[in-house]
Amino acid sequence: MFSFIVRRILVSIPLLFLASFIAFILVVNTGDPLEDLRTKINVPKGQIALQEHRLGLDKPFFERYFSWLTHAIHGDWGRTIKDKAVWDQISRSLGVTLKLVVFAEICSVLIGVTIGIISAVKQYSWFDHGATTGSFLLYSLPVLAVGSFLKFFLAIRLNRLLGREKNPLLKTIGESTANFCTVRKPQNCGLIPATTDFLTHAALPTLTLVLITFAGYARFARATMLETLNADYVRTARAKGLDEKRVILKHAFRNALIPVVTVVSIDFGGLIGGAILTETIFEWKGMGRVLVDAVTKVDPNLLLCWFAVTAIAVVLFNLVADILYAVLDPRIRL
């Protein structure tokens, strides 16, 4: 097992280096970070040269890349065009994004897989038809539409229904109320009000993510379960005289678990960069916002760090998927 993990890590490292190189090419081609500065009038040449030097723009491509890479490996992600530490900004946004996506993903998986299993076991029942149609529709709808619908339609009507138009229960903007805990509002300071405030903000974006994600898992779990339920070994299990619960859980589900767990762990890797639209619709200051800012303002170090964090997450969870697969399936030699 240990050597298997080491082997997989060794394969992943060159992949990450290559990915970082491609990301660097992309970032270099994003544009000129000092465009604004250059087009302004009355900016002394010396100041532009100074900025160029600070961002390393005056060096040739490969020198720039290796300089960035060696710093990054040592944990120094450089500074933004506004001369702030990149890592501070990324880590703050990462925290905001994780608060949203991790809980949403766990909910989606649990709901989706449960629905998928019930659908497969009761194939062609009214539940199956309903779940299949419902998840197909949700699966096909754009995030844009689901999120906007919840924000502009459901939230407003629900808040009105609850008679809370002035102080809405479901908040649609940001991850927390601005200036929530101040000297003038000491009752808002503390863990409980802060948590409540967060939950009222997180409800709708989480619901958006769950609605569009669970449907995919429901479809996948259903298809996988149908396959294992029709497998020869399930027929053997029935022929032994086992009760249906045992046949479904110990035989069909245990085998369906292998692909489901693999897919879920791979998906976890894509979460950080996967909620950009939801974050934007609900105006959270997460990784999505950082990306939009870094691209529009052409902030090379910020963008590189963004790529690095998301790519590492993808590679890491691919590794987790491989390991879980090997743990769950004895046919894989470690």
Partner: peptide, 22 residues
């Protein structure tokens, strides 16, 4: 179920797939 596997039992065609791999 009480009959299956107890009074009447069955051997299937393909032993490669008839046993649970896990």
């Amino acid at each position: 179920r009480a009959v299956r596997g107890r009074q009447i039992a069955m051997v299937f065609q393909d032993p490669m797939t008839a046993m649970n791999p896990v």
